[in-house]
């Protein structure tokens, strides 16, 4: 059993790390096709990364350790989070530690590291990005934790495997108003956390609109590769998390190799579909003005709050 468990954990980390660039490539490809372009292919991000990794590491003058350590820290936090989140299996050796709040906090730690790096560069762009990123992150936090609250109510715990396996055994929870509201709220929060349209545009380099890109403007070479990888992994992880929470079917709830294989296949499928939907949506949406973003986040906060209250009143009736 434990062997399968360890493999599942390693598999989760590996699939997020390896799948991150692929997901990014897949989304760009979907988007390109929908916009009538040919696209660079699904593997393009991997190719970019290989190129970047071979470049010479650069330290901009006047910067400090924060700038250097941040990219690795981003990747590390996402990796640890990936190990914890039951993407493939709920039955892993570390499943009792897989707390949802911890996962959220780990991801936030990565954000914070990058923001510090942005400030460390001492440039106007770095500071601007850090400031905006932290604003958005601060505002997303209540939404995420209220969604966590809503999700934990049926399971009676914020332990992720407990939530997921609870949903697997009782799928009716998902159809409840609370579940739908929480899904919607968390989806918006994920968009904000991963810096996608309409909160941020990952492909822009227009100073007035940049958030994430402004922070990492000073990175080059292998550092940039890690930053990109971190962002892609984070997207994968969060989409996977969404998938695990709201479409948990197929996740291995027992320690069997077959279930793990099925889970891997289904995970790939679910994330690919979610990625495609997201990419499609991004074609039709425009980025919001920075100061309209709080309205969006307030809306998602309201959804999360409603989810909690609804779930309380519905559960108290039953």
């Amino acid at each position: 059993m434990s062997g399968v468990g360890y493999v599942a954990v390693a598999g989760q980390v590996a699939v997020v790390a390896a799948g991150g660039p692929l997901l990014a490539g897949w989304m760009r490809q979907v988007r390109a096709r929908m916009e009538g372009r040919v696209g660079a292919g699904v593997l393009q991000p991997w190719r970019d990364m290989r190129k970047l990794l071979r470049k010479e590491p650069i330290t901009p003058v006047g910067t400090g350790p924060a700038l250097r350590i941040a990219p690795a820290l981003v990747v590390a936090t996402v990796a640890v989070a990936a190990a914890l989140v039951p993407l493939l299996s709920t039955d892993t050796p570390i499943s009792d530690r897989a707390d949802l709040i911890l996962v959220v906090a780990l991801i936030a730690l990565g954000t914070l590291a990058l923001a510090l790096a942005g400030l460390d560069s001492g440039t106007a762009f770095g500071g601007m990005g850090a400031s905006r990123e932290m604003t958005v992150a601060a505002l997303v936090e209540p939404t995420i934790l209220l969604s966590v609250f809503a999700l934990s109510i049926p399971a009676g715990s914020t332990n992720l495997p407990a939530i997921v396996s609870g949903t697997v055994h009782d799928p009716a929870r998902l159809a409840s108003p609370a579940g739908l509201l929480a899904t919607a709220a968390l989806a918006v929060a994920v968009l904000a956390e991963t810096g996608r349209i309409p909160v941020d545009n990952p492909s822009t380099h227009l100073e007035l609109t940049m958030i994430h890109e402004a922070m990492v403007l000073e990175y080059a070479g292998p550092d940039l590769a890690l930053v990109e990888l971190g962002a892609q992994m984070r997207l994968t992880l969060l989409l996977g998390l969404l998938a695990s929470l709201f479409a948990p079917w197929g996740i291995a709830t027992s320690a069997s190799w077959a279930a793990l294989a099925v889970a891997l296949a289904l995970f790939t499928l679910k994330v690919a579909v979610l990625g495609a939907v997201l990419a499609a949506a991004e074609v039709f949406w425009a980025k919001l003005r920075l100061f309209r973003v709080p309205e969006l986040l307030a809306g998602s906060f309201l959804l999360a709050l409603l989810a909690v209250i609804v779930s309380y009143f519905l559960s108290s009736e039953s």
């Binding site: 590491p57 650069i58 003058v61 560069s121 440039t123």
Partner: peptide, 8 residues
């Protein structure tokens, strides 16, 4: 690692 001027 090589030191380089800030790009900004």
């Amino acid at each position: 690692r090589r030191d380089a001027r800030l790009w900004d």
